[in-house]
Amino acid sequence: MVAIQLTVDLKPDLPREAERIKKCKGRVFALEDEPEVPRVWLPYDDAPGLAMARAFGDFCLKEYGVISIPEFTHRLLTDKDQFIVLASDGIWDVLSNEEVVEIVSSAPNRSSAARVIVESAAREWKHKYPTSKMDDCAVLCLFLDGKINSEESDCDEQCYSSATIQNNNDLSNPVELDEGQKSEPSLRRNYTVRSSEEIEKCVGGESVDVEDGTSTAEDQNWLALEGVTRVNSLVQLPRFSEEKPNS
């Protein structure tokens, strides 16, 4: 397995990013208690300390070099490409490309690959930065050969796996059970893609009219289908044309 990095984290200390920020009178430096995290600061105020050079929002820094223009790259996939790992900087700040590839390759099954990466990152955060707050960790593993785990259920069958954990508070707060017992915190898989057949299986087999977003059952509680109704209501908003009405 050879890890191929497809993107570059646009951190403020990246030479071209730092040059743009400094030209716009912004400042780039790291705090003494976290020298490993360079941040963007206003010219005459030690705020807000943004740890990235490009972002949506953060309007106070838009005049000082923080932009929201993305970078685009292309890669032609071949038979040698086996999977793609998309993750937030909470993963890449503590795990190398090679370590992530090794974790995915050695995962017991594909559905648990993302979970194992996040758990490994959480351990590394505690080890490398014991005094820092753990950054948000989100991972999605996309397998390119189209194969799925045969032992998974219908609702679990995907060609990808994903897992998310927000910060170290999630690890320090155990879940309280009904019996008063405390269990270890666990990560949830994020099921973002569903076909119409999978939706019917996962919400009890009820059919849904996609055009008007309603269910054939009168006692439908909407659940995940509520978003369909909202989207369709937006689609059905009246459209105004520039044509003048007939007099």
Rank of each mutant, 00 (worst) to 15 (best):
P130G: 02
T131D: 07
E151M: 14
C141T: 06
K128L: 14
K128E: 08
L140N: 14
E152W: 04
N149T: 00
L144R: 10
N149G: 00
A122C: 15
R123G: 04
A122W: 07
Y129V: 13
H127F: 05
P130F: 00
L142C: 05
C137E: 07
S153V: 03
L144I: 10
A122L: 11
C137M: 11
A122T: 04
P130S: 03
L140Y: 11
S153M: 11
L142W: 08
D145F: 03
V139H: 09
C141V: 15
F143M: 03
P130K: 06
L144D: 07
A122R: 12
W125C: 00
E151F: 12
I148E: 06
S153T: 03
D145H: 06
T131V: 09
S150N: 04
W125S: 03
H127C: 14
R123L: 13
M134K: 11
G146R: 00
L144H: 13
F143E: 07
K133N: 14
D135F: 05
A138V: 14
E151D: 08
D136W: 10
D136P: 11
F143N: 00
C137P: 05
Y129Q: 12
I148L: 07
S150T: 13
C141P: 10
A121H: 01
S132M: 08
K128W: 04
C137L: 15
S153E: 10
E124S: 11
G146V: 02
P130H: 09
G146I: 00
A121I: 00
A138N: 13
K147V: 01
E124F: 14
H127A: 13
Y129D: 02
P130L: 01
K126T: 10
A138T: 15
H127K: 15
E152H: 07
L142G: 01
D154R: 06
